[in-house]
Every structure is written in structure tokens, then in C-alpha cells.
Design a protein around this nucleic acid. Structure first.
Lengths: 253, 253
DNA sequence: CGCTTAGTTGACTCTTCTCAAAAGCAGTGG
DNA sequence: CCACTGCTTTTGAGAAGAGTCAACTAAGCG
């Protein structure tokens, strides 16, 4: 069937928090009713929607965003495979923002009733899923600090550190290298800066030899240098980042 | 006993989401083990702490913050009476940020075990408390947009709209007027701008006659004008803002 | 090969920061 | 009652960061 493998990334992510039994995993896998595809640029969920399904991103990148009165848009979060788009609609009546596909995306649909049952009846899964939303919130806080208080190059450097760890946590990074399927305009909308300034900021990071870009692949040859430059502390990613803790220790020493 | 009335603001806030039975309310009230006082500037919870209690703010203002490598600090959220400081420690092992008293504060302490029992055994309260954290997350997203994409005066105007509604929702505002017990430095740390610029931004809002300040009391005589100026949409505050929805409708018409 | 989208560059403007100092406003002790 | 101290608010002026506009290049695609 077509829903096979939909949950591998999610399970992989959740197991950074706590071990799931085979039964737990099966419950997750079986909760997927069907999958859907979204082209780059299309909306997966729109502001004001009251979806009947919880959307689990299986493939591609998506973003939470709001449109601004002046016509611009602000991207508030990146969603990568394994991320749930809208567990919050289980409680909040209405989406207060939109979720758009940044690349072409494959999404697994879990009926709202199923997710509610799951969370009522399986303590472990309920805890794991809430853990996921709390981590999302921690990421949001860090982004707020980043956008509010870091200079442009460190801001972008910080983002790249984060996305390297997050892609790594779901098996999408290799050799300090990952696919970043975004335009510079989208990056600019994310970091709250203009396209031109984002372009020059990236050039700055390249000329400092902190990142290498090749098409939409980003490579960080010297992660330690980038971490230091961006003052990156992976604590806020909680258990997702344990592989990097040791590196941080070493750095301080 | 001294814990009387600790939960009035919290209950008032939660009832914007759903009606609580007398039994629910009693459970909440009885969950408070004791209260504590914190002087302005002191830490209620520090980064890295693993508190045994969930802290409920009863009186005063507090803020979530992180210290920056350059010595500055960034405030990521305001907490007012009725707000829970750290439901997240019920799941996350460790605080990834600190919570500091911005004015002198009174805090109710709820043992972690009690809150966990409550949430396991009382569906209504569990839903209501999670609703609270989801609203916190929505506020965080809006702040990210504000800091990233709005010009300074609109940024501060937006914040004042929000805090007027939030204080109103727990009975701390009267006649479009509320107490904002913060220094300009703290506001600057919140909005990601310098003290000097915050000072001039406030002067701008005053000269546009959008706000009136008297000591630490802020009055918004023409709320509709401020809402329009700051492009404020209370949707993200969810049910807390229903009193203001009608005004918005009127404005658009 | 022309069309469209994404990335790059230069020149100029405006916002915001920094440094530095003055002014207002408690509380404290003489 | 007044000088003194510490903290907050306010001003001024120059420097740096970031935005805008407009053009040009590069890359993918029918």
C-alpha cells in the first residue's frame, strides 16, 4: 500500500525522546488514512482552515507563514519530513497561520479523531507527540532571539546549524551536508531581511569559508567554526541534538 | 490560608477556552502547594534548572529570556497573572531558557506530580492547560513576525495592543488602560532594538496620539486607531480576544 | 532560441545602532 | 531640607547596517 514508510522520519524523531514499542509504532503507521502531494508554492493548509486531518510531512520542505499587510510574507518555521504540521488543531478551533509547500511535498493524512484517540489511549505516544510540539516551541523561541538580536551573518549561520542538526536527526543529512530547497527570497522572508541583503549575507558566509553551496546543497566543512561564529547552542533542540553535545563540550575545552 | 485566590486569573483565562466545573476549579485550587515571592530582577527559574514545581504567576509581570553571547539579553515572552511559567518541564528534561521577575512577583507552586496526575485524570483540565500552551505558541509566532517584519513604531504598537487584550482577559485592564511595569531597556530587549531607539519610538507613538503614558500606566484612548496603525489582528490570541472581534468587524466595515 | 525565474551587482536612501552626555526622579543619610 | 547616589529617560550626532530601485547575468525549460 502507498502509506508504507510514511512514518519512518516521525518515528525516528520521536525516538530521540523515548523508545517506542513495536505496538506504538504500528499504531502510528496504521493511523495514516492516505497521502497527498503538494506542488512547490501551494498551500497545504490555509489560515482560517479547520482541517479534519492532522498533516504529517513525509517528503519535502514546508513552512509556516503569515502574509503581511504590505503584501510580503513572513515564514515562521520550517517543516521537514517527520514534522507534524498542525497537532494544534486538535485543540484550537482554527489555524491562525498558513502552511505552504516550499518544495514539492508528500504529506500523510491522519484523521483528527484517530489522533485524538491515540493521544487519549496511549500514554507513550501522547507524551512523545507533545514532546514534539514543545520542541517546536523551543525552536520558535530561538528563532525569535535570532531574528531580534543577532547580526545578519550569524543569523543565517545559526539557521544553517539548526537545519543541519534537524535534517541529520531524521536521516536527511550526510557528511555535514544537506539539501536546502529554498530560494534566497524564501530565506529572506524567514530571517526578516530583504532579498538583496540575504544574497550579500550568504556571500559573506561563503567568503568566510563557513559554508559551501552547490545548487541547493549546503555543506559545512568546518562545523565547529560555524557553531562558534554563530554562537550556536543546540540545547534548545533538546534530545534531537545529542550527537552534537559532545562536539560542543570539546569546543569549550 | 495563603493560597486562596491564587488561581482566579488562571481560571478566568482558561474559561475563555471552555467552561470549568466547580470540581475542576477546586482541583486547580487545591493543587497549589504554597506560594513564593520574587523581587524585581530576580530569577524565578534559571536556564538548565529542572524544577520540581510548575510555577503559576499570581501577581506581577515576568519574562522568558535568554542571555546573549555579547552580554545583552533577549526577552521572548511576557508572563502576566494567570500564566503558567513552565508546564513544559513536565516533559522536557531541562529549561532551555530562564524566567525572570520583571516587577515584584507572587508565584503559586504546583508540585510536578500533582500537575501530571491532574492532566492524566481530568480530561477537561488537561485540554484547557494544553490550550494555554498552544496559545503561548501562537503568541510566539506573532512576535516572530512582529520583530522580523514590522517597522519599529508598529512593532511597539502591536505589543501594546496585545498586552491590553491579555491584561483585559484576566481583569487587569480598565478603560483601555493597563499597568506596564517595565523599563524602556526591558522593552528594547523584548523588541530587539536599542534603548535609544525604543525611547524615540515611544515618543513617536505618543506624538501620533496613539498611546498616553503616565508613569508605567499606558492608556490607549483610540484603540481602533492603534489597531489600524499596527495592523493588529487578534486572531492569534484565540478565544481570549472575543471582546475585540466585534470591534475588528466594525473597523473593516 | 526566446522565456521565465533565481541569483548578483551597484548606487543611493533611510533606519537603527553606538557613544556620550544631560536631565529627571526616587531614596538615603547628614 | 539638601546634597548625594543610582537608575531611568531623554537628546544629539556620527557611523554602520539594511532597504530600495534598477539593471544585468545565469540557469532551466518548452
Amino acid at each position: 500500500m502507498t502509506t508504507d514508510g510514511c512514518c519512518t522520519a516521525l518515528i525516528r524523531k520521536l525516538e530521540h525522546f523515548e523508545k517506542l514499542s513495536d505496538e506504538d509504532k504500528n499504531l502510528l503507521v496504521k493511523s495514516v488514512a492516505r497521502t497527498a502531494e503538494f506542488g512547490a508554492g501551494s498551500d497545504i493548509i490555509g489560515q482560517g482552515d479547520k482541517p479534519d486531518y492532522v498533516h504529517l510531512l513525509v517528503d519535502g520542505w514546508a513552512g509556516r507563514y503569515k502574509l503581511l499587510p504590505d503584501g510580503g510574507r513572513n515564514i515562521m518555521a520550517f517543516l521537514i519530513p517527520g514534522d507534524l504540521c498542525d497537532v494544534n488543531v486538535a485543540l484550537l478551533e482554527e489555524m491562525d497561520h498558513s502552511i505552504g509547500a516550499l518544495s514539492s511535498c508528500k504529506v500523510a493524512l491522519i484523521p483528527l479523531a484517530t489522533i485524538r484517540n491515540l493521544m487519549d489511549q496511549n500514554r507513550t505516544l501522547a507524551r512523545a507527540l507533545w514532546w514534539g510540539t514543545l520542541v517546536d516551541e523551543a525552536v520558535l523561541r530561538e528563532w525569535l532571539v535570532t531574528v531580534g538580536s543577532r547580526p545578519a551573518q550569524q543569523r543565517v549561520g545559526h539557521l544553517i546549524c539548526e537545519m543541519l542538526i534537524r535534517t541529520e536527526a531524521v536521516g536527511l543529512a550526510r557528511d555535514n551536508s544537506f539539501d536546502l530547497p529554498l530560494t534566497q527570497q524564501e530565506l529572506a522572508d524567514t530571517m526578516g531581511m530583504s532579498l538583496v541583503h540575504m544574497n550579500r549575507t550568504l556571500q559573506g558566509l561563503r567568503s568566510r569559508e563557513l559554508i559551501i553551496t552547490n545548487g541547493h546543497t549546503v555543506t559545512v566543512e568546518n562545523l565547529r567554526a560555524l557553531i562558534k561564529f554563530a554562537a550556536f547552542d543546540p540545547l534548545y533542540l533538546h534530545q534531537q541534538a545529542h550527537k552534537f553535545r559532545s562536539m560542543m563540550q570539546a569546543k569549550v575545552a
